[in-house]
Design a protein around this nucleic acid. Structure first.
Length: 481
RNA sequence: GCUCCCGUAGUGUAGUCCGGCCAAUCAUUUUGGCCUCUCGAGCCAAAAACCCGGGUUCGAAUCCCGGCGGGAGCACCA
């Protein structure tokens, strides 16, 4: 099977621009508010891919600052993220946590204040926004270094309430890009942190902590979405102040899955409310959920790599991912009959034999055949039962019938060139969990108990599913058609 | 409103930096046909694109200017 993947990959043209360097040091910076989902996969895979191609070093750096009320770090997320990375085949060499490096950020923050490049600001968020829009300096900006240092000390000691003071960098309030004007470097939060509890109340913001760490850890390239381009400029600004040479930036455009728009934090919310069954609920599109649906990590990787490093903002249908996955699983997935929402039809006419045989896989007769019992009571999907009323249809590998209400007149057994439907005369109860969280109930052939749990199989004319349980009844998760 | 980014077939993508080999690549999609006792897979064929307008040039998808369209940022989120 690995050979099969290699062949496929060789065919695949990949268009990642080459880096003109010997080796690279790069980082993955997930925020632990939930497991990785398909929307995070681009960041992960691109970084991993570049590092592998250049035989470099990849650092897993949990970006676990305190976040916001809407976006809180979550203890279970650390492991869920790791689990997702391992599943994707990402190889990283070192692991760091922002929450363990707070003293470092304080140290460099203080340096910036000493240098007169940062100041403590007591404006409210609204005031700050107003001044930023107008391009005006607030009254706190002109404080002396000494004042600032003392106020910084008060911040650390806890003399300010949440929202009471922030540390801002001095750029230029006239700077053309309003987003860049005197950005906040540190702020106060009383929220407890899953790893360090209430030990710290003053937390750095993304661009500052990265400006420090990207330099300290010797990053050569920062690969991030183009939504973070402004953060590049901020990091560069800070490196300049310290006289550091910074890594190079690489960007990719915004990728959206057509059928998926929510964020990790949204799911955290829904999970609490019981609207979702878990972090691997198909509606979350987490890596865990994809695994559960029988999506192969290789399919995800190829899917992502197919977009290259394009800076265009794109919206892609999930069918594109499914197409990749189908290429990978069609060959291995054995076939079974599953009749959702079964309707019983009474056959009229002679039935020859008690069984019929069907290949486990049409392209692989060597895998053997499965037997299906044939009686005069047959179950077919309600959809087919409706569609083929007053029509002739073939029960695959069994017989041709003329369907009239709940009766089926047998009119032969030869393989005629008419539409074929799947059917069952007996079966096991089977539930299939769909992508929208609903369940298809039906019956499946008993032969499925030969399959192993976690196997990916195809329910003929229905789709590829992953078997979660086969005994006593069958529980499967729908992958795709 | 301000700043930045992007704009090639239905959807993505290659080509854009270093203009000609691009009457534009590949995948997917759709439609035919073949094959197959699945509306799966496979094989063959076809459909289908350089946002618009100027300019530079012998020559522009590629360079310049101007529009238009889409996205992101302007959070004490990441």
């Amino acid at each position: 099977m690995p050979e099969y993947f290699e062949e496929k990959e060789a065919e695949e043209e990949e268009h990642l621009p080459e880096l003109d360097v010997d080796t690279v040091v790069m980082r993955l910076a997930p925020y632990p508010s939930g497991p990785l989902h398909i929307g995070n996969a681009r960041m992960v895979i691109l970084n991993d891919e570049y590092v592998k191609r250049h035989d470099g070093k990849l650092i897993l750096f949990y970006d676990d600052t305190i976040g916001s009320d809407k976006k809180k770090p979550l203890n279970v997320a650390y492991d869920l993220i790791k689990e997702g990375l391992e599943w994707l085949g990402v190889e990283w060499h070192e692991t760091y946590y922002k929450s363990e490096r707070m003293e470092l950020y304080y140290e460099y923050g203080e340096k910036l204040i000493e240098m007169g490049e940062a100041y403590v600001c007591e404006c409210s968020a609204e005031e700050l926004r107003g001044f930023r829009e107008k391009g005006k300096e607030c009254q706190h900006r002109s404080r002396t270094v000494k004042e600032n240092l003392s106020l910084w000390d008060s911040m650390l000691k806890g003399s300010f309430d949440e929202g009471g003071a922030v540390v801002r960098i001095k750029t230029d309030m006239q700077y053309p890009d309003p987003a860049f004007r005197d950005r906040v470097l540190f702020r106060i939060s009383n929220n407890p942190h899953p790893k360090v509890g209430n030990k710290y109340r003053v937390w750095p913001l993304l661009e500052f902590s990265w400006a420090i760490d990207d330099h300290l850890l010797g990053m050569t390239h920062i690969l991030r979405g183009k939504d973070l381009m402004m953060e590049d400029k901020m990091e560069e600004y800070i490196w300049n102040l310290f006289g550091w040479d910074g890594p190079e930036f690489l960007h990719y455009g915004m990728l959206r899955l057509k059928e998926f728009r929510l964020s990790k934090s949204d799911f955290q919310q829904k999970l609490k409310l019981g609207e979702l069954n878990g972090w691997d609920d198909p509606r979350t599109w987490t890596l865990q959920s994809l695994k559960r649906r029988g999506i192969k990590p290789e399919a995800v990787r190829e899917f992502i790599l197919g977009f290259g490093m394009s800076l265009s903002d794109i919206e892609v249908p999930a069918s594109k991912l499914y197409a990749k996955n189908r290429e990978l699983i069609d060959d291995e997935a054995n076939r079974y009959h599953f009749v959702p929402d079964p309707v019983e039809v009474k056959l009229e006419g002679e039935i020859k034999g008690e069984f019929t045989e069907l290949p486990s896989h049409p392209d692989h007769p060597e895998r053997g055949y499965r037997k299906l019992k044939t009686t005069n009571r047959v179950y077919i999907p309600r959809k087919d039962w409706q569609d083929f009323q007053k029509k002739e249809v073939r029960l695959k590998n069994f017989c041709n019938i003329y369907l009239d209400g709940k009766k089926g007149q047998i009119i032969g057994t030869e393989n005629k060139d008419i539409r074929k439907i799947h059917w069952l005369c007996e079966g096991l109860g089977c539930s299939v969990e769909l992508t929208d969280g609903s369940i298809d109930e039906g019956i499946v052939e008993k032969n499925i108990q030969e399959a192993k749990e976690k196997d990916i199989v195809q329910f003929e004319r229905y789709g590829f599913v992953k078997l979660l349980e086969t005994k006593p009844e069958v529980y499967a998760v729908f992958g795709h058609r």
